[in-house]
Amino acid sequence: MNIVFDFGGVLFHWHPASFLARLWPQRAADEQAGAALAQDFFQNYSGDWGAFDQGLIDAPTVIARISARTGWPAEEVRQVVEAVPDELQARPATVALIEDLKAHGHRLFYLSNMPEPYADHLERSYPLHDWFDAGVFSGRVKLSKPGREVFELAQQRFGLPAEQLLFLDDHPANIEAARALGWQALLFSDADSVRPELQALGLI
C-alpha cells in the first residue's frame, strides 16, 4: 500500500489553542480562550493564513494582514508566526508508526498544507527524505487541501492511481476530499487510535 501522511496534527504536534494560550497569556488565560483566538488568527486556515499556506503571500505580508484585520499589534502577530516552526515537534508515536509501515514494505508520501518557510524548517530538522518517497507542500505548489487540484497534483507526482493511495489526515474536510477522488482515507487523531484500523486492513 502507498500511505500518504498529513503533517500538522498527524506527524507533527499542532494544537493552536494551547499554543496561543502559552504564547499569549496576556490575551488567553486558558486553552478555551486560546481556541477563540486561534479562530481569529488562523481563520480555519482560510483567509490570510490560507494565502500564506498556499505560498501566495510571504510572512511579512501575513503578519501585516492579520494585524490590520484584528487590531493586534504587528509585533505580537510576528511572535506567533515566528514561533510556529518550534511548535512543530515530531510526535514520537507517529514516527514509530512510520517506521513500522516502512518495515512492512509500504511506500510513504506526504501531502501537507504548509507555508514554504515552515516546509524549509521541517526539511532541515527532520529526515523527511528517509521517511518518505516524495511529498507535496502547499506553499511550494500554490494549492492547498481540501481543494481537488492539490490531490490530483499529488497523485500525479506520486505516479499512482487513486485506489492505491491511503490518506491519513486530522481534518474531516480533507478526508472527504480525498475519498471523493477515489483515495482510501482514515481520519487521524493519534497513532495509537489509527493502528487498529491499519491492522484491520492488514497493513501492520
Rank of each mutant, 00 (worst) to 15 (best):
V4M: 07
V4I: 13
V4L: 05
V4N: 00
V4Q: 00
V4T: 06
G8S: 13
G8K: 08
V10G: 04
L11C: 11
L11F: 10
L11Y: 01
P16V: 11
A17H: 04
A17K: 03
L20H: 00
P25S: 08
Q26K: 10
A29P: 04
D30E: 06
Q32C: 10
A36I: 02
Q39N: 14
D40P: 03
D40Y: 12
F41G: 00
F41L: 11
F41A: 06
F42Y: 15
D48P: 07
G50Y: 09
F52E: 01
D53L: 09
Q54H: 12
L56D: 04
A59T: 05
A59M: 11
P60C: 06
P60I: 07
V62W: 05
I63M: 10
R65P: 06
R65L: 13
P73N: 01
P73G: 02
E76R: 01
E76D: 14
V77C: 04
R78Y: 07
Q79D: 13
Q79F: 15
Q79G: 12
P92N: 07
P92L: 14
T94Y: 09
A96D: 15
L97Q: 04
D100C: 13
K102D: 11
H104N: 14
G105C: 13
H106G: 09
L108G: 02
L111S: 00
N113T: 04
P115W: 10
A119L: 06
A119T: 04
D120I: 15
D120C: 12
H121I: 02
H121M: 10
H121A: 13
L122W: 09
L122A: 09
S125E: 15
S125W: 11
S125K: 15
Y126V: 08
Y126N: 05
H129A: 14
H129S: 15
W131T: 11
W131N: 09
F132E: 08
A134P: 09
G135E: 04
G135A: 10
R140L: 11
V141Q: 03
P146H: 01
E149M: 07
V150I: 15
E152M: 12
A154H: 02
Q155R: 13
F158L: 07
P161Y: 10
A162P: 04
Q164I: 04
L166E: 00
D170H: 07
E176M: 12
A177I: 03
R179H: 04
W183F: 09
Q184F: 08
F188H: 10
D192A: 14
R195C: 06
R195P: 05
R195F: 10
P196A: 06
P196K: 04
E197K: 14
E197A: 15
Q199H: 11
A200N: 05
A200R: 11
A200T: 03
A200K: 08
L201T: 01
G202Q: 02
G202E: 03
L203K: 01
